[in-house]
């Protein structure tokens, strides 16, 4: 692992809580590492666990999924589905030999700009520790 290794993180954020929380971090000018790229979905329940594996396969070193706090889902139950599905995925990842540090799940509400920063820092730090991901054969985007 070289010293200037910067992990590449893909994050899936629900529109109503976490994406809004990340926007609030911006409005509040909170600073955090630039390693994270966000894909907006309407609900964390929309995140297919395969997306996480797919991201790792495509070149991400870490993946984050963030939604509304349990009980606060804009769609009532979506984040419960996310929690179930992705919790299972986490176990499976360990089983197939992917360092579970590469995958984080969090609950960030629309008012938690500062929490968003902490979540990003933790995710980046853990992915940095885990090192570049070489586990799967890479596929490049086929434009």
């Amino acid at each position: 692992m070289s010293d200037n290794y910067e992990p590449n993180i893909v994050a899936f954020l629900c529109n109503w809580c976490s994406y809004a929380g990340a926007d609030l971090a911006g409005t509040s000018r909170v600073q955090y590492p630039a390693n994270i790229q966000v894909i907006r979905v309407m609900c964390s329940g929309r995140v297919n666990p395969l997306y996480v594996m797919n991201a790792l396969q495509q070149g991400a070193d870490g993946v984050l999924v963030s939604g509304c706090h349990p009980g606060d889902c804009h769609y009532m139950e979506g984040n419960f589905y996310a929690r179930r599905r992705l919790g299972m995925l986490k176990d499976l990842m360990e089983f197939v030999g992917v360092d579970p540090k590469r995958f984080h799940m969090s609950w960030v509400s629309a008012s938690e700009g500062h929490k968003w920063k902490e979540v990003v820092e933790k995710t980046v730090e853990d992915a940095r520790e885990a090192g570049p991901f070489e586990g799967f054969r890479r596929r490049q985007i086929d434009w």
């Binding site: 590449n8 893909v10 929309r46 997306y51 797919n54 991201a55 070149g59 991400a60 490049q140 985007i141």
Partner: peptide
């Protein structure tokens, strides 16, 4: 599939973010 957030619309996004290794 949810329209505008279909697998075939999100997967390319993931792929595009990955090429920057």
């Amino acid at each position: 599939q949810p329209k505008s957030f279909r697998d075939r619309q999100i997967l390319p996004q993931i792929a595009a973010l990955g090429v920057f290794k």
